[in-house]
Design a protein around this nucleic acid. Structure first.
Lengths: 213, 213
DNA sequence: TAGATTGTTAATCGATTAACAATC
DNA sequence: TAGATTGTTAATCGATTAACAATC
């Protein structure tokens, strides 16, 4: 599946949650479409691909959509995940509620700073990175989040993969080198900010050039 | 420009930095292509669109590429930006070096927690959110980053836009409602994690189905 | 010179839109 | 019933690849 298509499904889910909170029970393809900047036709094809059926004159049942999109994304499960690096970013992630929303269960925190080891964040103890491999093997953890500086990320990734981790959520601005079959999802904050910079520059150019009536 | 194209340019830049650190002075379109999972043809078209010229048998000069891509993204400038919300995430962002790399100069921090106001992070004072509008107007700040909970983001965005901010980098999981012409770049951490969940599910299905030889 | 690589045009592919009969 | 909206096929559009003459 194309990355953009995946993004669309996630946006549908976000919109559905909002609509449900407004008391709505059904939604039409055109409604979802305008919010997404796409046509109703595209939305109907997306939903059709998931074998979601709507009814003429009524649209789609929001509850059905939520369940089917959620199960496609596999976010109804609770895959155990470990987080390495309890700096400010790591701490923010631990305290957030994204894990359960995205189908994960944050079960272990690791750091190598003696001042942090033994403390706890959101009720989870910070464990010594020295025992990371053993803990991950014993618990059968297959996913991990790297909230580390770029210069430490590769070494930690290598250790995690050796211990059995098969999917990484990487915040370090570095292209991790991993064996085939290991999934790396890069969360590049820097790129989001660069994209903003580009869009500002583009808008300013458009304004300078004058609007075309 | 398509989002995916923009992403490609940013990835080229990342690769160039790495190549330069390895002492390389030139790079061919095919080299950039394989790293990006695309053909040399696409890379040559991307660079051609930026009026970057290479030389047969040698490729493109890395220094040229860096300057031209950087100036297209406008990341060589230093646009003043304010950050609102000095929680763990805000703190992580302040302490990172992404701002200057992406063409911004972080000049002001705001929060409404009395315990934080007056303290400083990375040498920058945390200011009272009550004086936010005035400060932003006086300094002519046109960009801001929202590192806030979803339930506070819309109200703060409204105040910022009223004060003259025209571009927002939003970390809250909410679709901000802003006037036409105001740019919002959403940084949805939750979506990155959901994408990982989906990719894991898909890989596991593929393995279960067996590899097609 | 020979040949590796560019710059660019034409061909292909896939995603999006348009269209419309089916239907609740 | 009438008509709004679906589900699906065909048409369009744009991005990517292929191809190849130009050239350093």
């Amino acid at each position: 599946m194309h990355r953009e298509t995946l993004q669309r499904y996630m946006n549908y889910l976000l919109l559905l949650t909002k609509l449900k909170s407004e008391g709505r029970a059904t939604v039409t393809s055109d409604e979802l479409a305008v919010r997404e900047g796409v046509t109703g036709s595209r939305v109907r094809q997306d939903l059709s691909a998931l074998r979601i059926l709507g009814k003429p004159r009524q649209g789609y049942r929001i509850a059905d959509l939520e369940i089917l999109i959620s199960s496609m994304l596999d976010i109804l499960s609770a895959k155990p995940v470990a987080l390495v690096g309890i700096g400010n970013l790591g701490r923010a992630l631990v305290l957030s509620d994204i894990w359960s929303h995205a189908g994960f269960d944050l079960v272990a925190l690791f750091d190598n700073d003696p001042a942090l080891i033994g403390t706890s964040v959101a009720g989870l103890p910070v464990r010594d990175a020295a025992i990371m491999e053993r803990f991950i093997q014993e618990q059968g953890i297959e996913s991990a989040c790297l909230a580390l500086p770029a210069d430490k990320a590769q070494a930690v990734a290598d250790r995690l993969v050796d211990a059995g981790v098969r999917a990484l959520w990487n915040f370090a601005l570095i292209d991790l080198d991993v064996p085939a079959g290991i999934i790396v999802e890069n969360q590049r904050l820097e790129q989001g900010l660069m994209a903003l910079s580009f869009r500002i520059a583009k808008r300013n150019q458009d304004i300078a050039r004058g609007p075309q009536d």
